[in-house]
């Protein structure tokens, strides 16, 4: 700013001299002042080129040494890949669990309806006293077997359907993991934006400050633990939660 100000002062001074000489009709002096003005202009130009060169140099240097960006590239992006792979695993397992439960339920139920229909028809014949003693003994044996099967398959199907129901918890867990990866993507975006705006350093520092604040917050919730990326202080399952709570008098 001060060089620019003194430049302007010098320009003003020369301009006044130029005006005085011109009004006095001193051609030679006017030429001299004009030469001096041109020299002044050239020095300013050189200084500007020097400044640009320095800025370019700084920009290239910070491009190479921007820690957060290289950290993002080295750690967080691979970390995000692991998280997303875990999402794929969770959804795949859930789909398989659900399909298995449904297939086994269908198998359990297969033939149950038609067998029931047949027995109901026989039972109706019995009520109408159309069955012989041998036929009734046969029907009674079949009904015993049917009731036993009904009891067993009923329990099986109920437990399979509960499995299918529980398998749906993947949606909550994967949703939370995906949101975290989206946050990372946003951070990478911010990093790139600040790289672009590096020629305006005040804006870049402002962005860096908010990024650091986000990383340093210890009370931030972590969400589901991802295999291989567990927090040091995370418990391993419900048993450890119970132990911890009972140590607190629960």
């Amino acid at each position: 700013m001060s060089t620019e100000a003194s430049d302007l002062d010098r320009y003003a001074e020369k301009a006044r001299e130029l005006l005085n000489h011109a009004e006095a009709g001193d051609h030679e002096a006017v030429g001299e002042v004009l030469d001096e003005l041109t020299r002044l202009r050239e020095t300013e130009l050189f200084r500007e080129v020097g400044k640009l060169t320095r800025e370019l140099h700084e920009a290239l240097k910070s491009f190479r040494t921007d820690n957060r960006l290289s950290e993002l590239a080295a750690n967080d992006i691979p970390d995000a890949q692991d998280r997303l792979n875990h999402v794929i695993e969770l959804t795949e397992n859930a789909a398989h669990k659900t399909l298995t439960a449904l297939e086994e339920s269908l198998e359990s139920l297969s033939g149950l309806g038609s067998e029931g229909q047949e027995l109901a028809a026989e039972w109706k014949r019995f009520r109408q006293r159309e069955l012989s003693a041998t036929e009734f003994r046969d029907l009674s044996r079949r009904m015993d077997a049917f009731f036993q099967r009904l009891e067993a398959e009923g329990a099986t199907v109920q437990s399979k359907l509960t499995d299918a129901l529980m398998a749906q918890d993947y949606q909550d867990l994967t949703g939370q993991i995906i949101r975290r990866v989206m946050k990372l993507v946003k951070e990478v975006e911010d990093g790139l934006v600040s790289l672009i705006s590096i020629s305006a350093p005040e804006r870049a520092t402002e962005r860096r400050k908010t990024a650091d604040k986000r990383v340093a917050d210890p009370s931030e919730l972590e969400g589901p633990q991802v295999p291989g990326h567990e927090s040091d202080t995370a418990v391993q399952g419900q048993d450890e939660v119970d132990d911890l709570l009972s140590s607190l008098g629960f």
Partner: peptide, 22 residues
């Protein structure tokens, strides 16, 4: 799904009656 010890303790101090991790 929050399974950090300090968080479980925080919930306990806030007066939770039970804590289940997903």
């Amino acid at each position: 799904a929050e399974s950090k010890r300090e968080q479980i303790i925080e919930a306990a101090q806030a007066g939770v009656n039970g804590y289940i991790v997903k």
